[in-house]
């Protein structure tokens, strides 16, 4: 040993090993992150997020279920306000039913109940239904934009975009 000259001394050897391991771990982490990112597609073929809901005069007072099956929205007219209410239960994502006799939305999965306004009053759900952005187009038709969500518990139902005065 003594007559051969070592290319690396002990300390240098361990620092190279450390660098090597750090790089190996980083490469593994990078591959893992890429595989993870791979599971999120860039384009998603979701149903239409915006739709035209006709004229404000089309809606009588109460709950309108015309857009429930196609867009997942209840149009609710109450106290001079028209709102677009999401039909996704805030508990676990089932679809509640509108019970006209009892004037409430009732979720079949776990029994969460909501008033016509969307405020929760029974069952395990932690918060009210969500409202979507609703507004008038220049031609007077109602446009509902589901990409923008307004939540009661955050005080967002005061936002003028979350309802329509009719």
């Amino acid at each position: 040993m003594s007559d051969t000259k070592l290319a690396l001394n002990r300390r240098e050897f361990f620092s190279y090993v450390t660098v090597g391991w750090v790089m190996f771990s980083a490469a593994c982490a990078g591959l893992g992150a890429m595989a993870f990112r791979f599971s999120y597609p860039n384009v998603n073929f979701d149903p239409e997020m915006e739709f035209l809901a006709g004229l404000p005069g089309d809606f009588p007072s109460g709950v309108d279920e015309r857009f429930k099956a196609t867009f997942g929205v209840w149009m609710v007219k109450q106290e001079g306000k028209l709102i677009a209410l999401s039909n996704i239960c805030t508990h676990l994502g089932c679809i509640p039913n509108w019970l006209p006799a009892e004037l409430k939305f009732k979720c079949p999965c776990h029994g969460s109940g909501y008033y016509m306004s969307g405020i929760n009053f029974e069952g395990p759900t932690p918060r009210p239904l969500e409202r979507f952005k609703i507004g008038l187009q220049p031609d007077g038709k109602i446009k509902v934009d589901k990409t923008k969500v307004y939540r009661w518990e955050k005080g967002e139902w005061e936002n003028p975009d979350s309802f329509l005065n009719v």
Partner: peptide, 20 residues
């Protein structure tokens, strides 16, 4: 579809990693 909707609805509520 509804059993999976309910089941995966819980993933939505994962602390920090689910939107609800």
């Amino acid at each position: 579809i509804w059993a999976i909707t309910v089941g995966s609805g819980m993933a939505k509520a994962t602390p920090f990693m689910g939107n609800a």
